[in-house]
């Protein structure tokens, strides 16, 4: 290592951290974005994330195939999404309350079934090396990229394109902006929302499997530490825009790496402050970007928080 690692080391660590840590944020926020675009909020994605992490790890352990684990985690997530979609369809049911109960339910269920999987070691997802061109070990390490991260980027671009340009995208947006208008067009509002929530749950489940199968790469009960909830906040911050979701996820990943990176180069005073960076960042951006005179730009009109 060079003698003046300072800024470069921190920037490299933040870059590497952004790539390593952002994937679950990305998947959960894309899932939540899709659900909210259809007019519902699913706060249960934290529970879905944790359950996805547990089920993915368990399946990978039993079958030896981490990719099968990712798939099953997604399917479990879709199951939670279906439950949310079904319950919210019932009259006078509040989607936020259902979301919170599903968050606790998913976490609790994951802890219950996950007991047996804390000890064993499951096969993990492979990574692809993009750093072969560099002889700097830090850069090589940073460019060990998991395919799920790339898949997340593709998904973000696809969702952005599909919501804007396809018939299905239009149906989802119409449902989310005005249920009466969608009904007048002959759209089955509940079905659209059910499917959007299921798809959102699927993404969140996949995001969870990344936590247990790649980084940090094992199943423990404290694994998520609130990342699912932060990702939900991140959707508002990203203005319901898939591409912004990607940038926001990267930013949160980088901010999370800031604390340890600064300590590693010897700037260790006030590490509690730097560890809180992602949360402080959220607050600052939220405060800076809201205005009492207009509603949030891009917010679906049917959301219970903006109505």
């Amino acid at each position: 290592m060079s003698q003046e690692p300072g800024l470069m080391t921190v920037l490299l660590a933040m870059f590497a951290g952004a790539i390593r840590v952002s994937t679950p944020f990305l998947f959960v926020s894309l899932g939540e974005m899709l659900t909210e675009k259809s007019g519902r909020i699913n706060l249960g994605l934290e529970g879905t994330l944790v359950f996805g992490a547990m089920s993915g790890y368990a399946i990978s352990y039993h079958t030896g195939s981490p990719w099968l684990g990712v798939l099953v985690a997604g399917i479990c997530g879709a199951g939670f999404g279906a439950l949310h979609g079904f319950l919210c369809k019932l009259p006078k049911v509040n989607d936020i309350a259902i979301g919170i109960s599903l968050m606790l339910f998913g976490t609790g269920l994951a802890f219950f079934f996950g007991k047996a999987y804390i000890q064993p070691s499951a096969p993990r997802l492979p990574s692809i090396s993009f750093g072969g061109w560099s002889d700097h070990p830090g850069i090589r390490q940073a460019l060990e990229i998991n395919p799920l991260f790339l898949l997340g980027i593709v998904l973000a671009i696809f969702l952005w394109w599909a919501l804007k340009n396809t018939r299905y995208g239009l149906i989802i947006r119409t449902t989310g902006d005005s249920a009466p208008a969608a009904l007048a067009l002959g759209i089955n509002v509940n079905k659209v929302r059910l499917l959007s929530t299921m798809a959102g749950g699927f993404f969140a489940g996949v995001g969870g499997s990344f936590l247990s199968l790649y980084y940090p790469g094992s199943w423990t009960e404290g694994l998520s530490s609130g990342q699912g909830l932060m990702a939900v906040a991140l959707v508002i911050f990203a203005r319901w825009h898939p591409i912004y979701c990607f940038w926001a996820a990267l930013l949160f990943g980088a901010a999370g790496a800031l604390g340890p990176a600064l300590q590693s180069i010897g700037i260790s005073r006030g590490y509690h402050f730097f560890n809180a960076a992602p949360y402080i960042l959220t607050l600052i951006i939220m405060i800076a970007s809201t205005s009492p005179r207009r509603s949030l730009k891009g917010a679906p009109g049917e959301l219970s928080i903006t109505k």
Binding site: V21, L223, S225
Partner: peptide, 17 residues
């Protein structure tokens, strides 16, 4: 107990040599 930050810290230490 904070697994993601522990992993980040471990990686940062390895990167620091």
């Amino acid at each position: 107990s904070m697994p993601v930050r522990e992993a980040e810290a471990a990686n940062a230490l390895v990167d620091a040599g």
